[in-house]
Design a protein around this nucleic acid. Structure first.
Lengths: 207, 207, 207, 207
DNA sequence: CATGAATGAGCCTTCATTCAT
DNA sequence: CATGAATGAAGGCTCATTCAT
């Protein structure tokens, strides 16, 4: 599919990828301009469409690229030896926060993908997005000691509730950041808040 | 502000409102075309801008319109005499599911508003959206008997977790519907799933 | 032609005239909006077109109105007993400067008329404009003692040169004002400069 | 800035330039339609904005283009060896009259620029225009023998008066032409009139 | 492989003018 | 007289995509 592009020298690939991610992250799918992308990447109009048939394909490629990059990085860092659910989750959250600092554009792009409702894009992405969500946390449960959870209720439901809690918590943090004057996310505050939720969840869901 | 428009005969108002809601719901703010709206509404280009100064104002009006309609309807139906948290919530979910069937475009539009990231719209809407979210459920807690909840953990956190759980559950249902061939939401299945979560939550969060 | 309009009560007439002059003065013929005029005048769209068939007729009416007002005022004030050409001219310049302070919109409007090149307006106004120019100064020569001018050259040419000199001088002053930050015309400086030109012209053109 | 455009083959450049100059000359900045320009030039809508970011930039380019063309041509033809002020000026006027015949649209466009009051254009052009005015004649004074002028009055004022005289004379000629049925300028008549003014000015301003 | 000129439909918005009330 | 809803052509401009070179 994108083999032509992948045969390019890495430096040019990166220039194009970064330019495209930045533009999509900033403006969203519809408003993103291929013109701006080629200008930023320093390549010609035609070339972009030579490698990626059209805007949609480019977006699709970028999504897969980011998906892989983020997931790889995450699993390289996560400690699968830690068997306590909450300690593992705490670590995962810290890793995510860290990556958000290292690859802000990529995260903004991914966030953009999740918010993107552009009709042209929606259907084919919805499956991908739900996959990614599942992986985001659930794949990370390898080796977890689930026996600590109370066993009078359905474990999978508890896990879902916990995940949803932290997803919503981070959504709220992003939302709050958007309303603040600096638009900056206060990671320390999030961490602190997360700890408080950890406490509640442990009390209610552990034996 | 929109007094000119509101003095129109109801039938024409509705034609315009419905056409606009449909277009925005389908395509999102950026891609929605005022051309399509006037064509669907059967009015002239100029008239739309006679009533609503510009696209943004139209969107704003529509948001307020839908907000009011949905909220009014909801509070007319909800039984504030029911003091049990989970029974009240069960009722609220049923009402919402009902309204989703009655006003599908309006709900799609509201959902669109919440996903909307168009730079032109974002800032002024973010506040409105967060207000609406708060109201959506929290205003509905009037008269609730909170003494039933365990008191070894922060009550507000529990409430948040519960709300988030049902929000995410319904998000997932919508998501699932979009991936199905008919795009139809299976309300019965949702109801059943909700009951299962109710059970878990009651067990864990009530005394 | 405009008898319908002239039968209105004076107050309404004035509201309309002032609103229209202001709009045309500010934006020029093309960019001036009849919408703004009716809004400012507090009348309905239809009424404006009831009195003045269309935008062009309104502009024409306004021109005649301003022309008359300015000329009347000027001849009321000018002292025709003064027979010395330059003293008379000095007085005329002072009167004009005065009126510019009293009726800034009207003067801006007249200036606008002179600069207006809008194809729709041009032809029918060119004659009027050249008439007005002639009157502006030349009608004011009644009773002037032209015997003071040297008689080895054509008197009419001298008069033209003198008029042109002061016209261009004031054009330059307006131009200079436009380039300054405050956009304000420095009348004292103009007066002073005029005196210097008077001196030159008297030396060269009087016997 | 306009390098894209300047790399085009000359023939297409000319088609665009001529179409644009003609449209602006005829209708003025505001009323000029980019639609008309592309139609006349036989190019697509997009292409015009590919070369010139927007209408204003196009106008700016055209101004510089005309300015250069006219000035270059003028200084190629003027004889700087002639030291007599009035003989030099007579020559300059003849050259200008000549050029007006060769490039009527360009001159109409330049005249248009000078009359242009469109708010969008005004500020950035006012400086340019005043520069051009200064150059128009004053740069042409190199090597002039000013000792022939009477020295009991300020020389710079005399020069101004002379320039203004010929500027106004030519304005009047253009004005007269516009009122005539054929719209044609009678160069012979202008020449003759100019000679008469020369006589007056020489008598009054030379020693 | 690479360029960037060229396309043209589509975008939102403005506007003078008309006409039923 | 007076209103203001209604019209629809025209405005400047953007954009993904194509194609001759």
């Amino acid at each position: 599919m994108f083999s032509k592009f992948l045969n390019l020298d890495k430096e040019k690939q990166d220039r194009i990828i970064n330019a495209a991610i930045k533009e999509f992250a900033e403006k969203g799918y519809d408003r993103a301009s291929t013109n701006e992308i080629v200008k930023e990447a320093g390549i010609s109009k035609g070339l972009l469409f030579h490698y990626f048939q059209n805007k949609k394909q480019l977006f699709l490629f970028l999504f897969d690229y980011c998906y892989e990059l983020v997931t790889d990085e995450f699993y390289k860092k996560i400690n699968l030896k830690e068997t306590d659910f909450f300690r593992r989750m705490r670590h995962a959250i810290m890793i995510k926060a860290d990556m958000l600092g290292t690859y802000p554009d990529i995260f903004k792009f991914i966030q953009e993908v999740f918010l993107e409702e552009s009709a042209e894009i929606k259907i084919e992405f919805d499956r991908k997005k739900s996959e990614l969500t599942h992986i985001n946390m659930e794949r990370a449960y390898e080796g977890i000691d689930f026996s600590k959870f109370r066993d009078d209720v359905d474990l999978t439901k508890i896990i879902k509730i916990i995940n949803w809690t932290f997803e919503k918590m981070s959504d709220e943090a992003i939302q709050k950041a958007k309303l603040s004057p600096t638009h900056e996310i206060n990671y320390q505050a999030i961490q602190a808040e997360a700890e408080e939720y950890f406490e509640v969840l442990i009390k209610c869901f552990y034996k």
